[in-house]
Amino acid sequence: MARRELGEINAGSMADIAFLLLIFFLVTTTMDTDSGISRTLPPPVPPEQQEDKEIKERNIFTVLVNRDDRLLVEGRVMNLDNLTQEAKMFISNPQNAGNLPEKEVQEIPFFGQYPVSKQVISLRNDRGTSYGMYIKVQNELTRAYNELRDELAIQKFGKKYEELEEAKKDAVKDIYPMRISEAEPKNVGG
């Protein structure tokens, strides 16, 4: 008789308790992970050796953004839509044109002797440029590099850049290294 009185604890409300907790965590959860455009700043230069590294004019792709958020690319006024195309043309220099960057033959794993262009993109903004525009320009320039890497990866390995193994990724990266110099702002005029 004593055993019968002990009985079983009713677990029917267990689900309710669990639901309550579940709803609490559902509400407080923020799924957003930090994402954005990553850049590495140049290391600080001691004031005594403030000499600029000489880079040939043809190897530099100058992008200016003024305080009205308008673009001047290589001395020409340009729309944001054309920037990626223009940057890709500059970085890869497919026809080895004389006014686009020089190439230097380097030993690259998987590719062998490959002419790597000595491109540098110089991005300069005004203090009055809006941050939104600046990010749009950065985005377009990043897109130029990403598209070139993808094209090369598909041509060589038949896969997109992001799907490659690390060693192959590095090889593609060696051919198209991302070199965007973010100069200190100057008043580039309005």
Binding site: G36, I37, R39, T40
Partner: peptide
């Protein structure tokens, strides 16, 4: 010398 930066975007 905090050189790695990330412009947070959506």
């Amino acid at each position: 010398s905090a050189l790695k930066i990330n412009y947070s975007t959506t």
